Computed example of a mutant assay.
Amino acid sequence: MSARPGRRPFGGARDLPVRCAARGRTARPRAPPVHLGFGHGVHHCPGAPPSRAEAAIAPRVLFEQHPRLALDVDPAAAAWRTGALLRGLASLPVLLG
């Protein structure tokens, strides 16, 4: 794929500065990409801190209360959602033991 001078195709839009310099171009310093799952700036989700706390605490408590927790399905056979917006398991059967 070729591009007009001064423009880059989308495939090269996220080149790391080191890779740009290795190709003989001057690389501009860039901030690392950030995850926008909870928004950014004025659009930041007010539920982000409790969600992060829950994600940190819930697995620990679950495994403390059910130390023999195990999958009840072959990991390769797990069904995934196929939607365009969200990626995740359709279900995750477990044995509490």
Rank of each mutant, 00 (worst) to 15 (best):
R7G: 00
C20A: 14
A13V: 04
A76S: 15
T82A: 13
A3R: 02
A58R: 12
V34W: 09
A70I: 06
L69M: 04
P33F: 01
R4L: 12
R81K: 14
V34S: 03
R28D: 06
L85V: 13
A77T: 11
R14V: 11
H66T: 12
A13D: 08
H44R: 12
A27T: 02
I57G: 05
A48S: 12
E64M: 09
H35W: 09
V34N: 01
T82E: 14
E64D: 15
A79H: 01
G24Q: 00
S2K: 11
A79F: 00
T82P: 02
P46K: 03
D74R: 04
G83A: 07
A21M: 03
L92W: 00
R19S: 14
A79C: 12
L71R: 07
A78M: 10
H44D: 09
A13L: 08
I57K: 04
S91K: 06
L71F: 05
P33Q: 03
D74A: 15
F38S: 10
P5M: 02
V42Q: 01
G83P: 07
A22G: 14
R87M: 12
A21E: 07
P75K: 00
H44Y: 15
P93Y: 01
H35Q: 08
L62M: 10
R30E: 13
R30N: 09
E54N: 05
G37Y: 04
R14Y: 13
I57N: 06
L92R: 06
A55G: 12
L62F: 10
R30V: 15
E54I: 11
A55I: 09
L95W: 05
A48H: 00
V94H: 05
G97M: 05
G39P: 00
L89W: 00
A56S: 10
R28Y: 03
A70E: 13
P29Y: 03
R23E: 13
W80S: 08
G6A: 04
G83C: 02
A31P: 02
A21F: 06
R14S: 14
S51L: 00
P59A: 07
H44A: 13
R87F: 12
T26C: 08
G24W: 01
F63V: 14
C45N: 03
P33H: 03
A22W: 03
R8D: 06
A31N: 04
A78I: 13
S51K: 01
V42H: 01
P32V: 01
H40Q: 11
R81F: 02
R4G: 10
